[in-house]
Every structure is written in structure tokens, then in C-alpha cells.
Design a protein around this nucleic acid. Sequence first.
DNA 1: TCTGGGGTCCTAGGACCC
DNA 2: TCTGGGGTCCTAGGACCC
Length: 425
Amino acid sequence: MPSVFALADCNNFYVSCERVFNPKLEGKPVVVLSNNDGCVVSRSNEAKALGIKMGAPVFEISGLIKKHGVKIFSSNYALYGDMSQRVMECLSDFAKDVEIYSIDEAFLDLSGFAYENLTDYGRRICSSVKKWTGIPLSIGIAETKTLAKIANKIAKKSPEAKGAFDLTGPLRKDRALLMTDISDIWGIGYSYCAFLERNGVKNALLLRDADTALKGRIKRKMGVWGTRMIDELNGISCYCLETCPQPKKGITASRTFKHPIENVKELKEAIASYISIGAEKLRRENAVTSSLSVFLMTSRFKVEDFYYNIKTVELPVATSDTGELIGYAVRCLENIYKKGCMYKKAGIMFKDLSRNCIQLSLFDKIDRKRSERLMQTLDSINLKMGSGTLAYAATAPGKTKSWHTVFEKRSPFYTTNWEQIPQVL
DNA sequence: TCTGGGGTCCTAGGACCC
DNA sequence: TCTGGGGTCCTAGGACCC
């Protein structure tokens, strides 16, 4: 049985989440900003039409914002995460297997739906999800994930598609691939796009039908990725549906500061707080780490005196104990801290994760059982009473700090906080 | 003045070993 | 003066994704 994938992708997801609870935003230009309200990460169609680009720094578009009354929001991750869960639950009603690909995308296995009209089925999914969650989405259907991505782009762009576009079967495929710019193919970024264009490959059809010589050049430049991409465009599926989330290979927690920081004490607090975030993720994954890195950097936009340094330590015994990790991290920080630098970003990384099996060391002085109980208690209190209820003193809890991320225009936590639930008056 | 965060995979090249 | 071959493992860096 040939495989059939549907890619369900929420339209302008973060903006759509804001609109669910604030319907007055419908039809208006709206953008959602990154941490510290730095740059644009989600745009409504109206904002796109004004020429606001993805990733644009806010200070560069402040004129446009003023002129057109663009509504702006800080990121509200609690809201988006919760809305995403609702959308994914709805989607799972429509297919036997679902792969959650990102916060706003999922692949559905529609193999064996041959007797249904797939376009109609896709439209039914869209209207049900919209009705149940308020979130609009588009569906692209095809024999491979890469083709489903292309189908999805067409579903989003063309109003006749009414939310869903089916690319299975030979009929519309050539035309669809001809109309697809090389840069719109999944896996083609800035660098590969330039390479392929230099080789005369301007659209997906030309890439699909590459001759042997061109395939060779692509293989040399892009490796196996390039080969697989051509196969996928030819309807040969190279990527199957991953229904169970793969265990994480590493965990990173880092933040950019609104204003640069020089003070080592403040940097220590920031690093301790990133360790807390990372270690909690680690425990949620049921994992321990045996490699910890701490890094510091100044602004990457000030090339003249750019400074970046990273220190990695291998731990004698793998752990997920926040306190223990803070201890190591602070020593790493002291190692790479250079006085006089204005730091703009700092973070921590855990690598070499292992699961559920701590290799004990003969020289270990820490009571592992006790540490495990302590972390379980910490996590359960924070889960019950709210994140950050219990925190290490090293993170300077309860005080407003220069390294704290700024969210000046954040909407209420409508769905995850009883105090902020929407009211009907 | 002001520019996000967290991932994955692949490859080349060096170190090391037999 | 002469100076092998092949395998494995690890890491850094590149490229991409959302």
C-alpha cells in the first residue's frame, strides 16, 4: 500500500492564538515578537502584506507599526503550548497515526483512505479543528513528506484550495512542482538555494528531473540529504512517520539579555537559572547528563570586539541534580569570564544524556537517593503550585534582575492560569 | 540605542590504534 | 634517504528546521 501523508500546519500560529481570545484582531495586521520583544516571529496575513519580514527587528519596522497601527504582542509560550496541545488532540481523531512535528505542525498517516476524497477529508479536518479550538490550519496531502510540505504551501496560498490540497496521483503534480520555487522546498535554505540556482535549478520540477551529472554534483555538495530530497520529490518516501517522540540528544537553555551585562555576580545568577530550566527538562526526559557546557558571548552585531567562549566539563557521575549542576556551572563561568566584556547572551548545554541508569563511581560522595527524592519534591511542588514556586537561592528568586527576559506586551495566560481566565461580562 | 531560542543531521578531518 | 593502510571514534562546523 503506498503511503499517503497529510501535513497539517496552523496558519500564523502565534497570531492565531492571540486572535482566539481577542477576536477584534481579526482582519487587522498583527505580529508576535520574540523574547525581549526583539524581533518578529509570527505575522498575520495583513502584516505580511505590509512587507513585514519574518525575523525583522522591531526597531527597523517601528515606522510601519505606527503608520498602519500594527498590533504587537510579546510571546506567550504558556498560551501557545496549551493551544498546540488542543490542536494535536483534535488531529488525532482524524488519523490512526500522528507525528507531532513542531508546535504548530503535524504529519498524519492517511494511507488506506483511497476510497475517500482526500481533499474533502482535509477540508473536514480544517473546519473541525477551527470549530473546536478556534485555530485555522491548512492541509497538504501527498505520497512523501517533502511533497506534502509543497502541497501545504499551495493550500495556504491559493483561496480555491479552501484549506486543503491533494497532490497524490500524477495529475496536477508537474504544474505544482513547476510553480514551486527551489527555496520553498523543505530542506533548502539560503546556501543550497544559491548553489542550485547557480546550477540552473530554479524550481522543484527541475530538481525532481535532475539528470545523472546534476545528481552527482548535488550529492557532492549536499550529501545524502540532496539524494533523498530528489527521491522524495519523485514520490519515493525516505522519511517515515515518527509516532513516538525520539529521546533528546542534548538540552540547551540560553537567553539574550535586553541590555548587556558585565557584572559576574549577575551572570552567575543567570547561569544558575538556566541550569534550573535545563535540569528540569532533563528530569522530565527521565535522563541524566555527564557533560555540561557553559557559554558567554557579547553582541554578535558588534564584530570588532566580539567575544565568545565556552567551557565544557565531563562529570564524574551523570546527574540531573540542579544544585550539583549549578556548582559545576559556576566554576565553568569563572573560567571563561573576561572582565571588561559587555555580555549579551549566556547559556548552558547538557550533552551525553543517558536514561535511568546512573553509573556509580567508587569515589562518589553524594547520596544519590536523597538527591533524587529532593528533585522529585522540587518538581512536584513547582508542578502543583506553579513554576518557580521553589527555586535555588543562586538564581536570586523573587527579585527583578537585569538579566530577566522582558515581555512588555504579553497577553494574559488565558488557558493556564485561573486568575487570568477570560471573563464574559 | 534596539537584532530569539532550541533542536537535528551530516561531513570532514584529526587522533589513535593495530 | 627512506615514510602503509585501514578502521574507529570524536569533534567542530555547516546547514537546515520550526
